[in-house]
């Protein structure tokens, strides 16, 4: 039984009604790492944000359901939804430099949720936070807890954020391009750390990325998006062996390989793009028809 199930999720921009998500469906089981890939603007971050309830104000969800442990989040009152998400889920954000509050020490930023939302007592929250920091291989967790964000390096801050994400034993984590803003050398360590933490806690992990290379390393399954529409939903092995959809195949061909760095890269061919755009248009027409019919 999957912990997170998204069905027919559609969203659009409030102003001009532009469609952002077109009936997206996906699921993540406990212990599963699912990659969510696509070009920029394909809506992959949007899905993570919809699940966590942090969509920008200009975006509205127009249909579908987001089942967290069997309960549809979209039908819950806002306060209830927030508490449920806060207790069961966590986000590993993209940019560690802006994701920590510069005016507060690291400690309270990690323990705050445990005390305020989950009702732990302070001493227990503190011990657990130090433990989580130690799990991320940060030396001297006590010192880190007392530090302000500007006193730490980018890699250290991302470790703090990972510790913060795993501190309450969440059942689902959304990682939104967690290594994009880091140095290449730090990227690999952070990636390994996320995989290690996920395996230890058996968390369901939704890994949003544009990098198929990253997907091949950490994910078991993946969902490929184009223009807010799922074009392929498959296991990682079968995907890298033989992608089912021509657009996925083109995307794979456009990705540099570590095994063949000198190999030539082919951009996604026009014909493939035209075909996938036609698919999008057909889906829109069907949605219109359903609404009016």
């Amino acid at each position: 039984m999957s912990f997170l199930v998204v069905r027919g999720l559609s969203a659009r921009l409030k102003g001009d009604g532009a469609r952002l998500l077109r009936g997206v469906g996906l699921s993540v089981a406990p212990g599963e790492v699912r990659g969510l890939v696509g070009e920029s603007g394909a809506g992959k971050s949007m899905i993570g944000k919809a699940v966590l309830g942090i969509l920008p104000q200009a975006v509205e969800v127009t249909g579908g359901e987001i089942l967290l442990d069997g309960t549809d989040l979209l039908t819950l009152p806002p306060g209830e939804r927030r508490r449920r998400v806060g207790a069961a889920c966590a986000l590993i954000p993209q940019d560690p430099l802006t994701a920590l509050n510069p005016a507060r020490r690291i400690g309270p930023q990690i323990t705050g949720r445990l005390v305020d939302i989950l009702g732990w007592d302070r001493a227990r929250a503190r011990t657990r936070a130090e433990e989580a920091l130690a799990e991320t291989h940060l030396p001297d967790p006590e010192r880190i807890m007392r530090a302000y964000p500007h006193q730490l390096s980018g890699g250290q801050r991302q470790r703090c954020l990972i510790a913060s994400a795993f501190v309450a034993g969440p059942r689902l984590i959304v990682a939104d391009e967690p290594t994009t803003a880091l140095d290449v050398t730090v990227q690999k360590q952070i990636l390994r750390l996320i995989a290690e933490m996920q395996a230890r806690h058996g968390t369901a992990l939704l890994f949003v990325t544009h990098d198929l290379g990253v997907v091949s390393k950490v994910c078991q399954s993946l969902t490929v998006l184009y223009a807010g529409m799922v074009v392929e939903d498959t296991g990682v092995r079968s995907f890298f062996r033989a992608p089912a959809h021509p657009y996925s195949a083109a995307l794979l061909a456009a990705t540099p390989r570590y095994t063949d760095p000198g190999g030539s890269l082919t951009p996604v061919p026009e014909a493939v793009l035209a075909a996938v755009r036609a698919e999008v248009a057909a889906r829109d027409a069907a949605a219109e028809g359903a609404r009016h019919g």
């Binding site: 921009l13 409030k14 102003g15 001009d16 532009a18 952002l20 920008p56 200009a58 975006v59």
Partner: peptide, 9 residues
Amino acid sequence: MADAASAGG
């Protein structure tokens, strides 16, 4: 897309 929304305002 955020630009489009604010342009309306």
